[in-house]
Structures are given as C-alpha cells and as structure tokens.
Design a protein around this nucleic acid. Structure first.
Lengths: 257, 257
DNA sequence: CGCCTGGTTGAGAATCATCAACATCTGTGG
DNA sequence: CCACAGATGTTGATGATTCTCAACCAGGCG
C-alpha cells in the first residue's frame, strides 16, 4: 500500500532530461526508430529539452501559433480542445514515446491544448527544422508520415468506440489500450496507475463521471479488475478483451470461453 | 422535380478524367495548392487517372497493401472499416478535392475501405513517388503534412461530436459540414443532394436509421430544412448553426437571436 | 481541523435504441 | 409502359442505457 508507484525507475531515469536520442530508452518507439545512428545524431541536434513540467502545466495552448511537435519523455499528458462555450473535449492521452501536437500542422495554430497529468518531461521538436531534415532523410520523412497516419487510424478507432460501443466496452477498451502501451515500454501490462481523473476518463469516452465510477465498481465486483484509487490491476485480461469485443457482459455470472 | 441534379456541370466536366492538374478546377483545393506551375507538372506526371467508378465500387479494401492515396475528382465516397464481427463503421465522407486513404500510410496496409456512393472519378497518387517528390519540393511536403494534420483535426471534431452532442446536433453538424464543403467548390451552400443513405448517415453519426429519419422530419416540420428524398434545402442556416452550438432546440417554437 | 476537490452511490428522468408495421423508391423483367 | 420485388425510408409504441440531480464519502492541503 505504500509502494507509492511501481514505475519509479522509468520516472527517475527519464527525468534525466539532457539525455540524447541515442541513449534514450524510448528510441525504439519514438521518432528515431528506423534511423541510422548518424541520422539520429542529426535529429538529436534539433531537439530542445527543457525542465520537467509539473502537473497541470501546459505544453501549448489551443489557437497558439504552431511551431513544434513534442515527444513525451516521461509522465503523461492529455490533449483537449475547448468549444466556444468553454466546454472541454479530451481527444487523447499521451504516454512516453508518443508524439503530441500533430494536429496543429494543418493551419499553423494548435488545434488543441496539452496539459501534464503529472510531473512530466518532453522533447520539443521544431517543426520547420524537422521538415528540412525529413527532406534530406527519406526514412525520417516516411516515418513521420507514418506517425501521423497512425494518429488518424487511432482516432478512427476512438470514433468507432464512441459511435458503437456501450459504456462498459469503452472503459474496457481504454484499460486495454493503456495496458498495451505500458507493455510496449516493457512495463507491466496488468498493473498500472491511471494518471488521469475519472472526470477525464468520462470526458474522453463520452460518459459522465458517475457512469465511469459505477462501471469501475462493477468491474471490480465481478473480479475483472482491482481498483485502488488510480492504481489498477487487471485480473482477467481475457474477459476484458471479450467485453471490448462484445462477446461478454458483466451482468452474466462470469461464464466465458 | 425533373431537374435530376443541379450539379450536372461539375459532374460532367470532372468526368473528363484525363484532364491535367493544371487545368483541373479543383486545383485550388487539392494537392496542387501552393505549388509553382512547374512543380504542378511534376506532380501531374505521377498521377494516374482511370475510368470512373460506378456506385458501389471500391477504390481499395481494408487490409489490402497500401500503395497510393486518392483525390476525389467527382462524385462522392464513404470510408469505412469493418470490425471482426463484420459490422461497419463509416469514418468519413469524401467529396471532390478531398484526399482519401491517408490512414493506410501507417502500417502499409489500408486501415479502411473506400466505396463510391455514386458514379465518381478519382486521381491515384502513388505514395512512394509522392514521397520522393515531397523531398524535392518543400512546399509539397509541407502541404501534405498539412493535409494529414487537417484530417486529424477533423477526426477530432467528429470525436467531440460523438462524445458530447445530441442526435439533433450531430445531424445539424453534418448538414453544415456538407454545406460548407459544397460552398468551397463554388456550389450552392444551401441546396444540395446527399449522396449517402440514411443508414450511412446514422452509422457515421452513431445513431440508428430511425433516429436519423425522425430528426429529418422534425427539422422539416419546423421549417429548418426542406427534404425531398436525398435533396436538401437549408432554409434557416442561422438556426442550423445555433442547433450545432447548442443554443437552440427544436422543441421550442422557433425563437432565436 | 476543516475546506475543497475528486470520487462513489442512489433515485428518477430523458434520450435514443429496439421492434414492428407500413410507405416509398428503384430498377428489372414482362 | 406497367407490375413487381427488394431495398430504403418513415412512423409509432415500448424499453433500456445512460444522464441528471442530489447526497454522501475520502483524501490532500492550507
């Protein structure tokens, strides 16, 4: 109960923010993927690394001029946009190795804001210099096209989720998504801390806080997950997937393949 | 009643499918935007133009190897992906001047399928050659980044719509979106034909056909739009926007700013 | 200690889905 | 040109999921 967080390793290590791309343990997920080491050095030379951000600080604000994209080095962020009436819509959560801010390229202004959900560090990648570099390093250009394309493909999965799925399926899908993104970083797939609030989860998934809360307790009651505030343990990954796929429901007394 | 379609001009003209980018009336919306005329010629030289597709024909299928993106020259398309259970999710509608297939770049396979909603013509743009060309023409690279970024930003608008809006707001937003895309092509903003079925609209917006139908009739009853099958006339654009923005509802007897 | 934010639980209401019947449109073949 | 069948769209009655409103609880911080 007092092992505050199980990922102190990554947190600590990645807060050493003057590390280079070459030595970064996220290099295999992030922009440098598929680059030769000399090209990695060139990429490295355009990247700015600043002090870590504290919880609640913004990387950039919606409508601000767009100048750079950002790689998450440690911590977690939410991206959100505000409608005219001030209401917020969260469009994504971002974890180490993922790239933020690509929706701002389109019209030279950020289409959303990005806020740290906990103490976090980032690498700033000035976009005009990335463009120049991409023109000279074909594999970098291709890789950046791929990153943007994957962002599109992932947004469309979310669209499908919002359009077709029940509240249970949405929450189960989010848990699985976070789980797999943890696994990608060689962290436990089945035990992790949710950096965002229940309100954020509801906002992201198109549900109210109350519904999110109810479903967490329901999932807990059937032994699907263990919840302790933001700490989550997935007890039955198979059932979780079955719920996402629509071939299992929580009101049945736990019969599955 | 017998003026079959008011856009026979564009349809006819654009079906002249061997036209070059330089002479294409969509050049100011499509990829050539912001290119010098010599660069347009270079772009033009890599573009493939085939025979028109008939209603129901596919440009590409989900999971097929990715090789090209496609510009709509005439007609209209829907992009959709199928879940494992075969259920379909429409992720977008595409009109002349818009680019299709960018979600396939990410992992070299198409993440969705694209089907013609009516007789349509396209320009095929081989992606590897576009990449080469982009590396040599900085403004082309930048423009393609921008197109992808806008696709992301638009998907996120849809996410907000699905996450936060009522059925009425979703339909109103779709009508406004189609209206503005018509206007961009110098066609009437307030009178157009919906190329997709009610079922498609419902699928796209996360609603059932019945709900879509009911809302069309409700909108018609209050004098917001005139509906004749797929022909739509927007009678009160201001109110339509108010509905999207959530500051007007149809159950109030028509009081607005 | 007490406030304040964030989270949980309950009761009632509302929107939208479902099920079912019917209408209309399209295109095909007689 | 008409008749028909299948697909597409409309309308109505009913019900379920989720939202809303409200109260209450827990933890963190001044």
């Amino acid at each position: 109960m007092d092992e505050s967080t199980p990922r102190r390793d990554e947190q600590h290590c990645q807060h050493q923010y003057q590390i280079s791309c070459t030595n970064c343990r996220l290099a295999n997920l992030c922009l440098p993927i598929a680059l030769e080491s000399t090209d990695i050095d060139r990429l490295d030379s355009i990247i700015q690394r600043g002090r870590p951000l504290r919880k609640g600080e913004l990387i950039y604000r919606q409508h601000e001029p767009f100048a750079a994209v950002y790689a998450v080095r440690s911590g977690a962020f939410k991206a959100f946009s505000n409608a005219d009436d001030g209401s917020e819509q969260i469009t994504g959560f971002y974890f180490p190795g993922e790239i933020l801010g690509m929706d701002g390229i389109g019209n030279n202004h950020h289409a959303s804001s990005a806020k740290a959900l906990e103490t976090s560090a980032i690498c700033e990648i000035p976009f005009d210099r990335l463009g120049e570099l991409s023109a000279r390093i074909p594999s970098l250009q291709r890789h950046f096209f791929q990153l943007m394309s994957r962002e599109i493909a992932e947004d469309r999965q979310l669209i499908t989720l919002l359009s077709k799925s029940t509240a249970e399926q949405r929450i189960a899908a989010l848990l699985l998504s976070i789980s797999s993104r943890h696994a990608r970083r060689k962290l436990s797939a089945n035990a992790f801390r949710l950096p965002m609030s229940r309100t954020d989860i509801g906002n992201y998934l198109g549900l109210t806080v109350e519904t999110v809360s109810r479903i967490f307790t329901r999932f807990q009651k059937i032994g699907l997950i263990a919840v302790n505030n933001k700490e989550i343990v997935i007890l039955d990954p198979v059932l979780l997937r079955d719920i996402v796929d629509g071939c299992a429901r929580t009101d049945q007394p736990r019969a599955r393949a």
